[in-house]
Each structure stands twice: as structure tokens, then as C-alpha cells.
Amino acid sequence: MELVTKISGITLRNPFMNASGVLGQTVSLLRRLQEAGAGAVVTKSITYEERKGYDNPTFVKIKCGYLNAMGLPNPGFKEFSKELSSSKEEFKVPVIVSIAPSEPKQAKEMAATFKKVADAIEINLSCPHAEKLGLEVFSDMGLTENIVKSVKDNFDGPVFCKLPPYRNEVLGLIKSLESCDALVVSNTIRAMVIDVKAKKPILGNKFGGLSGRALHPISLALVFELYEKTRKPIVGVGGIESWEDAVEFFLAGASAVQIGSALEKKGTTIFKELIEGLEEYLKEEKIGLEELIGLAHDS
């Protein structure tokens, strides 16, 4: 079965890509994802300045998923765009550059710089644990609107916005996203884990983002609701570990999905597993991927 899917004008050979922050830090890792079968590759969120990230522990496995507080480590947009532009021709699949600007001026400069190397830009409006970035930007409606506009005005390709999983906040601020082309739903949930013997929060940053299994039904509900409320194309993300988890997102209205935590559990071979599983399902159900998208809604 044909797995090709389209989002805001870009064509993917299949609807599976990595989630930002997972194996997207270097060209070598993005290339490994491409070779493993990903339909598009997404970079780590790039900020204006270089960031070292938070102190360890930065990533822990818990009973219902994973907690991370990496702290957006990245070499800064100038350094990263240099690395990406020197190897752009190695990519046969779309490269989606994730950026986390804190104000419109930064957004403008970053969008203009990535113009030549990015097939799409994903704006991180939802990192739950970085000061003046991600979620802190999103909570300011005017700021979000201006950042999205700045990117849109300085970039030719589609602009995606990655949202937090908090329903009321997202619905309340949805108007600020009018100029963006597609929504990525959703980022992690702010969370914490405490070690009972050390009697302290484990993460160096104390707070982190919850991903994995526990996030899946929460993201799914938000995708379902946003599909009806905005009619913008949606990229579903949250706890996808199997093709069934992905199909749920397509039925709820996502045109493509991103894989994050499952890369810890299954490694990059998960892409092959998802592709084969989805192909088999579409064949058995005698349905095309395009027809599947949003099918769970009452017409």
C-alpha cells in the first residue's frame, strides 16, 4: 500500500518521523534516521545562542514512560546551520528544523538562516522546562503570534507549531497560531520523579517532561479535538510504540506522526516495524492512508 503522505505542501515517503530532541542533534544521527526508513527527519530544537543544557540526571525511565530535562542543549543556530548546509544534499527525505526562539527578532534571523537548508520549520512553543523558551513563550499570546509571523515572513516553506498537551491552554491561545501551517501535537507534560532513598527529585533540573506511554491518550484526545476546531494539518506525537498507536493518531486526524521515547525501547529499527505494520493494516482493511486520516470523527 502507498504510504506517501502530504503536509502543507511537503511530501513524505511515509508518515513516520522522529520527534524533535530524539537523535536529531547532528547530521550523522539524522542520516541514521533516514537510513532506518524515516519519512522525514526533525532536528533537535535550535536556539539563538549555544546552550549546554542541564546537569545530569537528564533522562530517567519511570513506570509509565520517561522523564527528561535535557535543557535544550544545542550549538546555537549559526553553528548548526553551518553543519546542516554542508551536508544538505545527503538528505533524500524532508529535513524539518526545530527552532526555539524567545522573541520575534531571533525568530526572523533563524528563519532566514535556515531558509536554504530546511524543508519546513517547527517552532517549539512547548518545552516544559526551559526559562523564557518553549512553553513560557506560548503562554504569551501576543509574543507567540509575533514569533510565528516572523518565521512565516522569512521562510518560504511550511511552518509547524509544536504545542503543549494542555487542552485549556491550547484552546485559549489557538488564535495566536493562525499564521502557522500545521500543528505538532503534543510536547511532553511537566512532571517530576523523586528517589525515595535519596529523598530528592532525580532530575538535575528537578522538573522535566513526561513522554512515552502515559502521554499517548492525552495527545490523542488533543489531536482529535484540534482536528475539528482548526482544520489545520496535524502531526501527532506522544507515546507511539507500535503501528496501532500510530493508526489511532491517523484516525483522530493526524496526517503524520513523530516517534520519540520508543527509540529508547526499540532503537531505529522501529521505523521498519511501523512501516510494515501500517502497510499490512491498510491492505487488510482495504483502505488508503489518506482516507484513514480523521476517520474516527462523525463525518
Partner: peptide, 21 residues
Amino acid sequence: KCASGVCGSCVLEPQGLLACK
């Protein structure tokens, strides 16, 4: 950092192998 093959800080290049995993 992550010790789980997720964050990519320990990458061996050009293969994209992860020292942690």
C-alpha cells in the same frame, strides 16, 4: 547524558553510533 540512546550527545561519527548504547 541520557545513557539511553536518545539525546545523541555521545555520538561517534560519521556512523551515528551512540557510545552510551
